[in-house]
């Protein structure tokens, strides 16, 4: 009774649900922080040369996206490389991971190298690759490929290797063929793990592209950030960084969406969706 009373009075008082009130509080905190920043900068506590005002960052967004429109070119240059490197690196990673995973002998011999590779900061190979392949797109793609390779490789390897022994026993005792075991037992367990690796890889790809651009400094969003910072145009640098935040968020959500569609059996809604489709198909088949 008490609970329903209080919820009723809350509903009557604010006319807002709990969720709406939370969003309002979030917005309130956010705006207060922004306002404090702006005021601090205007009052001279924060040097606007190094810590740009929110209003200036907003103006920079307008400048680089609309008025000058120069960010589009660099964004495009970066994203093309990111996707090219990601595709190449992750295909290579999954392929080699499966190859190594299905072959115990190769697995045993490759293990020490994997450990050494894991300890090396892989982005650190960037200057080497640039020296070897020269300035330009090939070395950038190679860097992104290298950065993207590892997570899918390791995850594919562990996904393929960590098959449940009991279930494998069951499959064997029922006389399943190799192909059936792969398709019905190994893949359903491995694919979600592989997809987790792909998600990590795409995030790493963006970082790899940025490092490559920091070193090459000719085009791309990374070099844009570097140039703006060098010119102490911090507001524009921050506009670029927040662009990357949005991009990072889109990548995160995009990969989540792909994950839910590829490895649908790991997620409740996906399972229902596919189940409905299959039921429909079966019904149609039966009707005929």
């Amino acid at each position: 009774m008490a609970v329903s009373d209080s919820t009723l009075s809350e509903g009557a008082g604010g006319g807002l649900s709990l969720r709406q009130r939370r969003i309002l509080t979030h917005a309130g905190i956010f705006l207060t922080l922004i306002a404090l920043w702006e005021i601090g900068s205007r009052a001279g506590w924060l040097d606007p040369l190094f810590y740009p005002r929110p209003s200036n960052i907003l103006r920079s967004f307008w400048l680089i996206y609309v008025q000058n429109g120069n960010v589009w070119y660099h964004l495009y240059a970066t994203m093309i490389l990111v996707f090219a490197g990601f595709a190449a690196g992750s295909i290579l990673g999954v392929g080699l991971g499966a190859l190594v995973g299905f072959n115990p002998l190769v697995r045993r011999f490759i293990k020490p190298y994997v450990i050494v590779l894991e300890a090396t900061p892989r982005i650190a190979v960037a200057p080497l690759l640039i020296a070897a392949l020269g300035f330009g797109a090939p070395s950038k793609v190679a860097i992104i490929m290298l950065v993207c390779f590892f997570a899918p490789f390791i995850n594919t390897l562990s996904g393929v290797v960590n098959v449940d022994e009991d279930r494998l026993e069951l499959f064997r005792s029922l006389g399943a063929s190799k192909w059936q075991t792969l398709r019905k037992l190994v893949l359903p367990d491995a694919v979600p793990v592989i997809m987790a690796g792909e998600r990590l890889a795409l995030t790493a790809a963006l970082s790899g592209a940025l490092v490559a651009e920091f070193i090459q400094r000719n085009e791309g969003i990374g070099s844009l950030i570097l140039v703006y910072t060098r010119n102490l145009n911090m507001a524009s640098a921050f506009a670029c960084i927040f662009t990357l935040t949005i991009l990072g968020f889109l990548i995160f959500r995009g990969m989540e969406w792909v994950d839910h569609h590829v490895a649908f059996w790991k997620h409740e809604p996906g399972l229902e969706r596919v189940g409905r489709r299959r039921r429909r198909k079966m019904k149609e088949a039966l009707d005929e």
């Binding site: 995030t203 970082s207 950030i225 703006y228 670029c240 960084i241 990357l244 935040t245 990072g248």
Partner: peptide, 12 residues
């Protein structure tokens, strides 16, 4: 902070 590639902050 997580979705922003931290490396992008390097110059700043």
């Amino acid at each position: 902070l997580n979705v922003t590639p931290g490396i992008a902050l390097t110059p700043v």
